[in-house]
Amino acid sequence: MARFIARRFISMVPLLILVSMMAFSLILLLPGDPALAILGEERANADNKAAYYALRAELGLDDPVPIQYLRWAGRAVRGDFGMSIRNKTPIGETIGTRIWPTAELALLAAIISVVIAFPAGIISALRPNSWADAGATLAALGGVAIPHFFLGILLIYAFAVWFRVLSPSGYVAPWEDLGQNLKLMIMPAFAVGTGLAAILMRQIRSALIEVLNQEYVITARSKGLAERAVVIGHALKNASIPVITIMGQQVGTLIGGAVVTETIFAIPGMGRLIVESISFRDFPVVQAAVLMLALSVLVANLLTDITYGFLDPRIRHD
């Protein structure tokens, strides 16, 4: 197992380098040069040339691009992303505090999606074509199509404006007040998790229907096992493997959803950081934040692979 994990980890390295190159080259897409984009055309005009050249020097733009990349990547490996242009604080530290609300939101959304998807998928699979199944199918179609931010707005309208049971936005760290934190996070997590719940539910339904027709399930039934034991003990175990694949594939979507949803609920996470930094032309922060989010996806994929290895010994040995 250790060798399997090590192999997977090493195979990730080239991808990691490419991903960091892409995150770095975002700054090359800026019209003109980054210093110009950051200062703005009007502020880098003739009487402000000094500021422009100072910023160029500060950003190291006088060196060739590959050198700039190597310097940036070399520091990034040590967690040093340089200074934010907007508030002159180390970017690494900012990301260190901003990443937790996003991670919590994505995690809670994943939990909510599993909590919705498993019961709904099992009920649908046990009674295919029943009213319950049709209802779940319709709900899933809707769940995939509704934008996270629109669902968030509808939830705020229902629970904060109409019923006044939850506050519309805000954030408290879980280590300060867990109850308050969960109370504030429930709506955003639901808004982010619904789409994934819909996808998972369809997957669980079709996987379970397929497994329930297999011979070992018929054997389990014919030896007199209770239906509950057959479904939960025998069928669900095998039907769950594709669910892990889907979860792994959807981590990016989950993070993307969290990024948009943070704006509505005023959660100080990575999404808000990126959006704010873009509006202040603080591109070094954008680069670093985008890289960290891509890194999270890669780590999540690695974890999916490892989980697979645990569940299915055949994967470990190929």
């Binding site: 981590v251 979507t253 990024v259 954008v286």
Partner: peptide, 14 residues
């Protein structure tokens, strides 16, 4: 490997 929305966001911002 990039979350689709985040990448689209970053590219259109740049």
């Amino acid at each position: 490997a990039f979350p689709a929305l985040v990448l689209a966001l970053a590219i259109s911002a740049a």
